[in-house]
Amino acid sequence: MSHFLRRQGWVTGLFALLIVLFIATKLIQPGYGSGDFGSLARAVLPYAFAVAAQTVVVIAGGIDLSVAAMMALTSVTAASMMAGASEEYALFVVPFVLAMGFVLGALNGLLIVVTRVPDIVVTLAMLFVLQGAALLVLGAPGGGAAEWLKAMISGTVPIPGLPDTIDAWLPKALLVLVVCLCIVWIPLRRSRLGLSIYAIGSSELAAFRSGVPVARTRIIAYALSGLFAAMGGLALTMSTGIGAPIPGPYLLASVAAVVLGGVALGGGKGGLLGPIVAVFVLRLVRTDLTLLAIDPNVTAIIEGLIMVAVVMFGAFITMRGRQ
């Protein structure tokens, strides 16, 4: 138990913060109910995937600036493929887009390993490239999405035997998020590959000396990042029904949530749960600001300030750790 607390202390704190925020929300808006929670879950979805994508590479000691652009590209690809196509066709589109994300992510990693150009430059260049590619796929927001895909994240999960009042608090979007993340993350965490990802982020030299194939592990970490980003892109298409070629504000949000979630920017530390909870915290802050009838633009500023403050704090901690 003490182990659990020591390790998960940060995440536990975040959970507590989240609960406090929920209570605050309820106080601000007594009518805040299951429906609002459902829309929160839907709003969180793309952010959560972006954060998952960022988390994997940050744990491996890198950073991925192309997350948002990758989401945009996968989103427009999915939307343009599904536009006017049959419902069944989407069954093919989903795995195709996921595979695309995986391959493009692996390309990121491969370029870093082969060219030896720093990750930050490679992924910045990829940001340009993916953005451009997204514009080539769809010049303007458009395309479509299969109905069953859209239905997957709207509404709640009916569980037989549970009263509706509890049921209502289980939005499908949350389920999709949990399932998608767990399918990738849990086996990874238990495998030697997962350990290797932590190892290269924690100490590349020690990992090398322990016999970890450093280059291969790095490429896989970026590939997984691409896979999560593709999930995020699909989530965007699923929730809006279209694809937009201009990347959303997911890059900075993902970095901020990663830092807030207790994953050190130096690598090797933290897990996926923290950043995901952090996303909920950040989104809920936004909800609260909106409920307080604050100008949405001011909300954007406050959000930006929080993110920059969090990133500065994270850098400060990393710097202190190094000394």
Partner: peptide, 18 residues
Amino acid sequence: PEGARRILFGLIVLFVTA
């Protein structure tokens, strides 16, 4: 198109740096 231009810029940055 604009998209191709961005791709080109990205590739230029990567290529020149490498």
